[in-house]
Amino acid sequence: MKKRIISLLVVFALCSTLFFKVNVNAESTNQTIKSDTGKEALNYNVINGSKGDLLKKLAGNTVSNDGEHKLLGDYLFEKEPNNTFETANDLPLKTYVVGTYDSSYTDVDVYKVVIKSDGLLKVKTTAGKSNYTLASAILHDENGNLQEKAAMQYEDSGTISEYNVTSGIYYITAFNSENSINVPYILSTSFRPEVYAPKVKSISDRDTKITGSAVTNSKVYLFANKKPLNNGTLVCDSKFSVKIKPLKAGTKVTAYQVYSGYKSEVVTLTVSDKTPPKTLKVNKITSKTKTITGKTEASASVEVKKGKKLLGKAKANKKGVYKIKIKQQKKGTTLTIIAKDKAKNAKTIKVKVK
Results as ranks from 00 to 15, higher is better:
K3P: 12
R4Q: 13
L8C: 10
S16L: 15
K21V: 13
S28V: 07
S35H: 11
A41S: 15
N43D: 14
I47Y: 11
S50K: 15
Y75E: 08
N89Y: 01
P92Y: 00
V97C: 10
Y101R: 05
D102T: 13
Y105S: 08
D118N: 06
A127E: 00
S130K: 13
L134C: 12
E142C: 07
E142F: 13
K149T: 10
A150P: 05
M152A: 09
Q153R: 08
Q153E: 13
E162L: 14
Y163N: 02
Y163L: 00
Y170C: 03
Y170D: 01
Y171E: 03
N176Q: 10
S180V: 09
I181N: 09
V183E: 05
S190Q: 02
Y196R: 11
Y196Q: 15
S213D: 02
Y221R: 00
V235H: 09
F240H: 05
V242M: 10
K243E: 15
A249Y: 05
T251I: 03
Y256A: 04
V258T: 12
G261F: 00
Y262C: 04
V267C: 06
D273F: 08
L280N: 06
N283Y: 12
I285C: 02
T286M: 01
T286D: 00
T291N: 06
A298Q: 03
G307W: 01
L310E: 11
K315E: 10
A316V: 04
I326Q: 06
G332Q: 03
L335G: 01
